[in-house]
Simulated assay, not measured.
Amino acid sequence: MKSVLFACAAVGGLGAAPALGQAAPAAETTEASPAQIVVGTPVIDPSGAAVGTISSVGPNYVVLKTDKHEVRLSKDSFAFRPKGLTFSMTKGQLNAQVEQSVANLDELLKPGAMVHDRQRAMVGTIEAVEGDLVTLKLASGAMVRLPKSGFAPGPNGVVIGMTAEQLQAQLPAPGGG
């Protein structure tokens, strides 16, 4: 069987692996206004302590870079306060949450584990985990290799950051290269 390597869109939310900055950002905004989140914006916690800096901005998400991780979060996770853009967790709490999520993911990424998409549809089962790559057998029987950073713990086990249809559409046509 042919094995294909894909760059998988990262899964949003705190449950995602720290390499979330790998998702291709949308056009980045460079001018700030009180109601905009832009690249380079510092983020503070409710006490005013630094959490990190916005490293990329997408349509409905941002990537927040702390001293240890880059985390993709919903824009709704932030509040505009007089002291600056505010996030509800401290830098230490956010780093700990990401590290716990990564540890949980490593426990879930095992051969035979079922994988769902972000809409909770079944995608396939894990065939192998080798280094930073996961081989996934799709329902169609096709085998694909995805980076671990494209997976996250979800409500029913492991999820990927794209739909099953989006993943299937990236496969080469039968008989093609």
Rank of each mutant, 00 (worst) to 15 (best):
K2G: 04
F6K: 01
A9Q: 14
A9M: 09
G13M: 04
G15D: 14
G15N: 13
A17M: 09
G21H: 15
Q22I: 08
A24T: 14
A26Y: 06
A27R: 10
A27E: 04
E31D: 04
A32E: 02
A32R: 15
S33D: 14
I37P: 02
I37H: 05
V39I: 06
G40E: 02
T41S: 14
P42F: 03
I44V: 13
D45V: 01
P46H: 05
A49F: 10
A49C: 05
A50S: 11
G52D: 09
T53S: 11
I54H: 10
S55L: 03
S56F: 04
V57N: 08
P59M: 06
N60K: 14
Y61M: 01
V63M: 05
T66Q: 07
V71G: 02
L73K: 05
L73A: 02
L73Q: 00
S74T: 08
K75P: 00
S77L: 00
F78D: 05
R81M: 13
G84L: 09
T86W: 11
T86F: 07
K91E: 15
Q93P: 04
L94V: 11
Q97M: 10
Q97V: 08
Q100F: 02
L105F: 05
D106P: 00
L109R: 02
K110W: 00
G112P: 07
V115W: 03
H116C: 03
Q119V: 14
R120P: 06
A121Q: 15
V123T: 11
G124E: 07
T125K: 11
V129N: 01
V129Q: 01
G131R: 00
D132N: 11
T135S: 06
A139H: 13
R145K: 12
K148V: 12
S149Q: 09
S149G: 05
G154E: 03
V159Y: 08
V159S: 06
I160P: 01
A164V: 00
L167Q: 06
Q168D: 08
L171Q: 08
A173Y: 05
P174I: 00
P174T: 06
G177Q: 12
